[in-house]
Nucleic acid binder design. Structure first.
Lengths: 191, 191
DNA sequence: ACCTGAACACCGTTCAAGT
DNA sequence: ACCTGAACACCGTTCAAGT
């Protein structure tokens, strides 16, 4: 019977918190402002999440789950692994297009020292999911030796994260595109 | 006559603030804790800096000035530009060795949305100084076409910043070294 | 179940007051 | 010149109280 009453508030909190953390980070996330976005009071957030830290962990968890689902879908829809890999940088481009935000995991990774263990783990999961996907695709593409697929996947992931960080700090999407193009030209993304 | 009385406090504040921002960022910088590190009260900081924002700008300014001076010294001491470029990743490795900290400019770049214009400018200056140096060295080395030196310099800078961010979030210097090695293997740092 | 106002300790900041 | 205690508005958090 009954009872999904608070699901709307919970969902709204998670979504608004995600956007806020992508712009201001965990330390910059303000519960009173967040509550106002959702249309409730700050104290009410505690009915859905026991603390700001656990809210952040929940947001980070959903973030990598969504990322993982998207990447699997991309792989399922795009037959060619090379084409799939070519499109990977797009995923980090959207955050820049959407209000000059950045990857929630990159931001929270930067704030590692101020995060509880659970939140840090979810941040690591995002990186692991992305690296595993890249590694699998590189392996499928078959253009570099199998032993180099995982190191290369990590290199691509960290380089893309860096490009997003730099481009965002200048509010310059064209710079992001230029950096990705340079990575290709230099061989990092060449397949 | 007289008067360098407050230079010691001012210097101590700048140094302690630098370390704190490298670990916790601008939003994570706590003036009461900072004052305690220096041995004064939080209110006293305002005798040396008009606000937390202007303190951060002063810290960021000194940060890129020191970086610039170091890079010029490295270039003066190391005849070979290729050797010079090979040693560039070391500069980002030190922060990891020194308490798993990160580049102050990368951290503040991440927090761009919450910084005043002056602080953002100093953060951009750091990137500009590093990119200009890399571009000059790439040009001296002569192994890539002149027109590609600056784009490549930007790519190297953002990739190194990304590697530091990822490695720090795992407190794993070996990962930083592996990422740099992968960049070399992939051709990004090859000369 | 879900939400709130009032209170707590903490933060950036100001200011009058100390030396 | 340099520093401080006390106060301000703000923040994360708690809790008793509302529906």
């Amino acid at each position: 019977v009954t009872a999904l009453g608070n699901l709307n508030s919970r969902e709204a909190i998670l979504n608004a918190a995600k956007e806020a953390v992508q712009a201001h980070g965990y330390n910059g996330l303000n519960l009173r402002d967040l509550a106002q976005d959702v249309g409730i009071k700050a104290a009410s957030i505690y009915h859905h999440f026991p603390s700001k830290a656990e809210l952040a962990a929940a947001v980070a968890r959903r973030y990598w789950e969504d990322s993982s689902a998207y990447l699997e879908r991309l792989l399922a829809e795009t037959a060619d692994p090379v084409e799939c890999l070519r499109r990977y940088p797009e995923t980090f481009r959207w955050a820049l297009e959407n209000g000059n935000r950045m990857c929630l995991s990159s931001f929270m990774a930067t704030e590692s020292d101020d995060l509880p263990e659970q939140a840090k783990q979810e941040v690591r999961n995002f990186a692991d999911v992305n690296v595993a996907w890249l590694s699998k695709l590189l392996s499928m593409a078959g253009s570099i030796p199998p032993a180099e697929c995982e190191p290369r996947a990590r290199a691509i992931y960290s380089a893309i994260a860096g490009a997003q960080l730099i481009a965002r700090s200048r509010s310059d999407i064209a710079l992001y595109d230029e950096l990705v193009e340079s990575y290709r030209a230099a061989g990092l993304l060449r397949l």
